[in-house]
């Protein structure tokens, strides 16, 4: 499936333990990758519905959406996108290293990916806090809403929260799984048994990054 392992000094042999019901290693790897892609298919359609709602709102209330989008923190969003792109880079690096069998370097890259993900969440948390200060949280009943005179802006801002919260939830679970995986991956002899886990997890991480790559322009950039 992936390129055969050419490593200057293969630290350890890399492989997969075969579960009972699979006939060959390749069949298990193919099943795992294909299974993850089938799951990512459903995630893509989940977010596709959200992007459709954003598009319909843009069609129904163009000026309100633009007014609301003006209040979004464009530059923090851009910075966040860069952060996720870097995490995607470190994740790809971790996958390459796992193929070469360099366990310690791989664990380093996994930790880097997790920390970049956490940085994204912190920046997003700051963004939410700034919105809270600016009274841009219409779904909070008690707080007055800044753009109350244009009710339709409320829709876009709320949708922004739903979309980014759903993405943040995926990122949060992603980081939690990643930390568990890294802890396991640091055990000796991990790569002989479960190198495939790193590859499959990499697909999931790249996907979260892909969703943000689409969400950032659709929510922030296009409506400015």
């Amino acid at each position: 499936m992936s390129a055969e392992f050419i490593g200057a000094n293969p630290a350890e042999p890399v492989g997969v333990t075969r579960a009972g019901h699979f006939a060959t290693d390749a069949q298990q790897r193919h099943a795992a990758t294909f299974g993850m892609w089938a799951w990512l298919l459903t995630e893509l359609l989940l977010f596709a519905g959200l992007f459709l709602t954003a598009l319909i709102l843009r069609l129904l209330h163009p000026e309100a959406v633009q007014a609301a989008a003006g209040h979004l923190k464009f530059w923090i969003g851009a910075a966040n996108t860069v952060v996720l792109l870097c995490s995607s880079l470190t994740m790809s690096a971790a996958i390459e290293l796992s193929r070469l069998g360099w366990q310690r370097m791989m664990v380093g890259c996994l930790l880097a990916t997790a920390s970049l993900g956490a940085l994204f969440l912190m920046l997003k948390g700051y963004e939410y806090h700034a919105d809270y200060e600016e009274q841009m949280m219409p779904f909070l009943a008690r707080r007055p809403y800044a753009l109350a005179e244009q009710p339709a802006t409320r829709l876009f801002v709320n949708l922004y929260y739903v979309a980014t919260a759903l993405h943040a939830l995926h990122l949060f679970t992603g980081i939690a799984i990643l930390l568990g995986l890294t802890w396991k991956a640091s055990r000796p002899g991990f790569l002989q048994r479960h190198q495939n886990w790193i590859e499959v997890y990499g697909l999931y991480w790249h996907f979260i990054d892909l969703i943000w790559i689409i969400a950032f322009p659709v929510l922030y950039v296009v409506n400015r």
């Binding site: 990512l40 298919l41 893509l44 359609l45 596709a48 519905g49 598009l55």
Partner: peptide, 9 residues
């Protein structure tokens, strides 16, 4: 996945 999202849109 992308094709089906296109159908929905």
């Amino acid at each position: 996945g992308f094709f089906w999202a296109a159908i929905l849109f």
